[in-house]
Nucleic acid binder design. Structure first.
Length: 416
RNA sequence: GUGGACGUAGUUCAAUGGUAGAGCCCCGGCUUGUGGUGCCGGUUGUUGUGGGUUCGAAUCCCAUCGUCCACCCCA
């Protein structure tokens, strides 16, 4: 008869202050850098019609077929928690009537939901920082989006990240390549692992980045998309690389990069680290020129990427929690009201202040100590009579009596 | 979804079938207008949960929940 322990759902974690401090650092870097590239923040719903993802991501993908939190609501509508951001962004862009508003540059930060088996760096509710650029066709835009991603991660100062790019071709050249690859794979099917044999049918390009060594040995001379691009895609891919070279952005062409979601074409990229085990992809994206039309809009080229906020946060050094500027200690009950008033004056002047709550001086100074404040303002009956406060600097124990207005000046000066 | 490791105090970890412990943290005192270092004292657990084996289970067995790791997939 013991009650079930009340706890969060599996794979869905809390963001406590120490964790949120790390998230905020990542978010601040994103906002600053994306702002420099003239991207605007958008906020989209977490709930969307299930149909949206079935049509955009592809019914056969794992995300849609088994990882969505989908349900029927009380009105009988098919609803789901969004598993990714791009489809909703396209929906919002269409619904907002922005198809003729020129290039739209968007970014968003928010939770996504996938019912996977949790692991480090893989949660059922996780946050993505996403970027979408609509009505942008050229390789220049691709290079700039890549440059923006690079600038964002550089701002965070995470070492050991590598940019890998590839071209996935388009409707004109991919089918032919796919056929060639499939027949190549079928000839070797006997020597490939079991999962690869399933992939040959479901998603042959996935075979190329199989982690099994014996598979990789078998695939050394496998045909690659980059060698089978049509002229248009080839020019585009060359253009992207020229742009990156001009910006001196380090990258590596990895012909084996594949996209999980159906809607990608041409440029695909990933930024990876080796410090997160098998969840090493920290940012990924690419071009999706066909998606808007797929969802009922006018043919519109677009490109975007998404970064995993928790994964990036894990790569950060410890982020110190903000500490208050001052702690207020009150000595004797008579001065309680006076102490509250002094705290109020300092807060209105912009300082961060904690009141130690009265009681014994010893207890209050311990409280102040634990708050890691640099200064304590102590007030008792003496100070109240004189209309001053005692300012103590905790590091060296020095203290002096001053009017509270001067305390503000001193602290603000020292905090600079 | 598949395979594996793990789960003991707020926390980090001991206790290999025989009375559940230690460090840190926390609270109080030495010191009722002064913190950190010191000394003294104190609180803390249905050993994740539920069953089973046993005279006796943190320890062995089963189930379940959760974390972690790999696969799958992906940010």
């Amino acid at each position: 008869m013991s009650e079930k322990k009340l706890q969060s759902i599996r794979g869905i974690h809390d963001g406590l202050p120490a964790e949120v401090a790390r998230w905020q650092r990542v978010e601040q870097a994103a906002r600053r850098v994306f702002g420099c590239y003239a991207f605007s923040e958008v906020r989209m719903p977490v709930l969307e019609p299930t149909e949206l993802f079935v049509r955009s991501i592809g019914e056969a993908t794992d995300i849609v077929s088994k990882e969505m939190y989908a349900f029927t609501d009380q009105g009988g509508d098919q609803i789901c928690l969004r598993p990714e951001g791009t489809a909703g962004a396209v929906r919002a862009w269409l619904q907002g009537g922005l198809t003729r508003s020129g290039t739209q540059r968007w970014y968003y930060i928010g939770p996504m939901f996938r019912r996977e088996r949790p692991q480090k760096g893989r949660l059922r509710q996780f946050q993505q920082i996403g970027v979408e650029m609509f009505s942008a066709a050229g390789p220049i835009e691709d290079a700039e989006v890549l440059a923006m991603a690079h600038a964002f991660l550089s701002e965070l100062g995470i070492p050991g990240l590598n940019i890998e790019i590839n071209s996935l071709g388009c409707g004109a050249c991919r089918p032919g390549y796919r056929e060639k690859l499939t027949s190549y794979l079928q000839q070797r099917a006997g020597k490939l692992c079991e999962t690869c044999n399933e992939r040959i049918v479901r998603n042959p390009m996935r075979v190329l980045d199989c982690k099994v060594q014996s598979c990789q040995q078998e695939l050394t001379d496998a045909p690659e998309m980059v060698a089978h691009l049509c002229d248009g895609c080839d020019d585009h891919f060359t253009g992207v690389q020229k742009g990156l070279d001009a910006l001196a952005i380090p990258y590596r062409v990895n012909p084996r990069i594949v996209r999980g979601l159906d809607y990608y074409n041409r440029t695909a990229f990933e930024i990876v680290t080796d410090k997160l085990g098998s969840q090493g992809t920290v940012l990924a994206g690419g071009r999706y020129d066909g998606l808007v039309q797929e969802l009922g809009g006018p043919a519109t080229p677009a490109i975007g990427f998404a970064a995993g906020l928790e994964r990036l946060a894990m790569l950060l050094d410890d982020v110190p929690l903000a500490t208050p500027d001052v702690a207020v200690v009150v000595l004797g009950e008579e001065a309680l009201g006076y102490s509250l008033a002094q705290a109020d004056v300092m807060r209105k002047a912009g300082l961060s202040v904690v009141h130690c709550g009265g009681g014994s001086a010893k207890r209050q100074f311990k409280v102040a100590d634990r708050e890691l404040v640099r200064f304590v303002v102590a007030v008792g009956e003496d100070e109240m009579q004189a209309g001053v406060v005692t300012l103590k600097e905790m590091q060296n124990g020095q203290q002096q009596r001053l009017p509270v207005s001067e305390v503000v000046t001193v602290i603000k000066g020292q905090l600079l």
